[in-house]
Write a protein that binds this DNA or RNA. Sequence first.
DNA 1: CTGGTTATTATTATCGATATCAATAATGAA
DNA 2: TTCATTATTGATATCGATAATAATAACCAG
Lengths: 244, 244
Amino acid sequence: MSRHAKSQVANKPRFDPLQNVKKGDAAYHAVRRSILLGHTQPGETFLEQRIAEQLNCSQGTVREVLLRLEQDGLVLRRGYRGTVVSTTSIQEAAQMVEIRIQIESTGARQSTMSIGRDILAELAAITNDMDEAVRNLDFYRCSELDRAFHMTLFHQAALPSLEPILNRCALHIHRFTYLNAEEMEPELSFGDNHRALLEVIQSRDPAAAAKSINSHIGHVIERWAPNLMEELNRIHKHESAPLR
Amino acid sequence: MSRHAKSQVANKPRFDPLQNVKKGDAAYHAVRRSILLGHTQPGETFLEQRIAEQLNCSQGTVREVLLRLEQDGLVLRRGYRGTVVSTTSIQEAAQMVEIRIQIESTGARQSTMSIGRDILAELAAITNDMDEAVRNLDFYRCSELDRAFHMTLFHQAALPSLEPILNRCALHIHRFTYLNAEEMEPELSFGDNHRALLEVIQSRDPAAAAKSINSHIGHVIERWAPNLMEELNRIHKHESAPLR
DNA sequence: CTGGTTATTATTATCGATATCAATAATGAA
DNA sequence: TTCATTATTGATATCGATAATAATAACCAG
């Protein structure tokens, strides 16, 4: 028996031995989930001590969580006076989409050339998990898996310092879409969209891949946030930048 | 005498009474400065305890600092094994420029319409401080004031959730430029460029302002990182997106 | 020797207590 | 009463100590 396992049994393990995650990470996801699902609305304030109680951890750990969420742009810290949940305007969401398309087009072009069989399999697996999440009507998991798909693909482009920006934009777009949608029933087209995208990527044509991911993003917005699509069209009238 | 001042005198103030800044902020800027100036090179690792000693603060405070720097993309945290300084490739820098132009064009268009006399004065003041920094050959302060100028201008666009992204891109571009430049003597053209930009903004023509800020960014890159400009041109050959 | 188990070490992760801060309520002299 | 000054309160910011972790060194049966 290894020393590691022994110490966990001997002196009361503080973390769940089953899922070896850091407490701070768990707390981060818990709070982020609450924000993304609109369980805590924009404008509401978090208090470090209270969250610490609710999540069974210390103030310092919560502090770290709120710091991370601030960098994600999901909360605003007002030193000594609490941390409030931020809001995303449609103008901001539209800009996030522009940035996202800029980044992911480049990413798709790059990835197409270097992507291997193993990654394609991983992407397919994520897509299958997504079908499962859709069947369970679990929007949050859908949103996480969607980001995982796009981030995994982009990771192949080997532009690591852009990954946090992409992740951040995707996060804001998901929140905007979810909080503003009339109805939000996940549907199987999610997975099918990604599978179609994978087909094109496998064809190894960089330009086609870039075009394909752009139209993928466009379709999703058209379907779930038509008002955001209108905003994008309005913008393009004034500055003539290409969406797809 | 206020209670605040009294308590500071009575029981040994922990913070410098002269500049009432939070210790964490001071530490953040100290470490960031060290990275931006290349004083600590990409690949070097930070240890929380050591930094804490050097900066005369506790490990927890340093932790917070490194967390922030990770979100800035300047370091990479490898849990339990130290925090290493990241690097920025020319491809990444080029993408950052694209994003920056995307954001700042929109910002300039918006700001032009809502900007007031007070903000114009503040921008002019920042520009004057920059002249001073140039005279002192203080590159870091130049870089900070340049970001302050652009961020102050963009703040008027009222798109707060995009501000951290812009700041982050500007940060990376500055670092790339500084670490890759042959010579890096600040020169007075910095301030003059900004003054010319202010002229155009005062004319209240959104399209002109957007065009002007694009060419401003272009000029700066052309002057200080010609190889980055080449990379941008190479990109545009393939995807036909407008730089200026 | 040799390969796997067990200490050691260096470092991050977490906690609980205390200091500091900003807002507001209480106080009291003019 | 009024308003400047002084507590009080509820929150964050910081600290110092301890626990968990990963890498590596020491150990020892075969």
